[in-house]
């Protein structure tokens, strides 16, 4: 695979967060958190349990209303964009977000029509087979194992054209080759100019683009970024 040699200069600023503060109940989780997410960047959010990683991700995708600070997507506050921002976003929470009584095929078809880019059946079948589920497409997902259910949810990453992915612990309950596949998908997303913000406890190698590490719960400057070892 030809690794395109592009310097991740922040030409197209995708997500811009300035002095964000979030609270859980009465406890202030973090405050004055500012960072930018340009195109072709992977933001790796780290921190102990309870340091507010999930709260930060939910605030970034608009599910949670931050106490202070602003989140801008391509210069526009996400609260004003609302549906338009949702169209550019794919969120992956702790729950799989698939219906147990529906088959993998139906789940993905409904998800894509709701995201308003209806894909035809064989694109879905191709995605499911790439994720390692061929033969299981028209089986109600309640009959699948926990790992297979997660793969059905992951198949949405293949189908999605959203420039911004926000993934909360995507690697849990995945076996070894599913982990490789997910890393490949994330690398492809970053390579084609998208941005990914995720929380995980393992490394995510990239073919190109920059990795930013964002550690929560430390008093020191939370944002540190380094470029991938790619040749450029």
């Amino acid at each position: 695979m030809v690794s395109r040699c592009s310097h991740p200069q922040p030409n197209l600023l995708m997500l811009d967060v300035s002095d964000l503060a979030c609270r859980r109940g009465e406890r202030l989780l973090f405050s004055d958190l500012s960072f930018q997410v340009p195109a072709e960047t992977l933001v790796h959010v780290r921190g102990r349990n309870g340091s507010g990683k999930t709260t930060l991700l939910r605030a970034l995708c608009g599910l949670l209303r931050a106490d202070a600070g602003s989140i801008r997507w391509r210069g526009e506050p996400i609260r004003d964009l609302a549906e338009d921002y949702n169209r550019d976003l794919l969120y992956f929470g702790h729950l799989n977000g698939i219906k147990a009584d529906l088959t993998g095929l139906e789940n993905l078809r409904i998800a894509s029509t709701l995201d308003q880019d209806p894909t035809d059946a064989d694109a879905i079948v191709a995605a499911l087979s790439r994720i390692g589920l061929e033969g299981f497409e028209d089986l109600p997902t309640r009959m699948l194992s926990q790992g297979q259910k997660k793969r059905v949810a992951l198949a949405r990453l293949i189908l999605s054209k959203a420039p911004l992915w926000i993934l909360d612990e995507p690697f849990t309950a995945l076996d070894v080759d599913a982990v490789d596949l997910l890393q490949q998908l994330i690398a492809e997303q970053v390579a084609r100019g998208g941005s990914v913000i995720l929380t995980t406890h393992q490394e995510v190698p990239l073919t190109s683009g920059a990795i930013q590490r964002l550690t929560l719960g430390e008093a020191s400057d939370p944002v540190s970024s380094e470029n991938t070892e790619s040749s450029c």
Partner: peptide
């Protein structure tokens, strides 16, 4: 309740559609 438990409700909130319509 069913959608809340399996996470599909979250996805409904994050579709590019007005939530009231859904």
């Amino acid at each position: 309740a069913a959608d809340y438990d399996d996470g599909t409700l979250e996805q409904l909130l994050l579709t590019g559609q007005p939530l009231a319509l859904l």
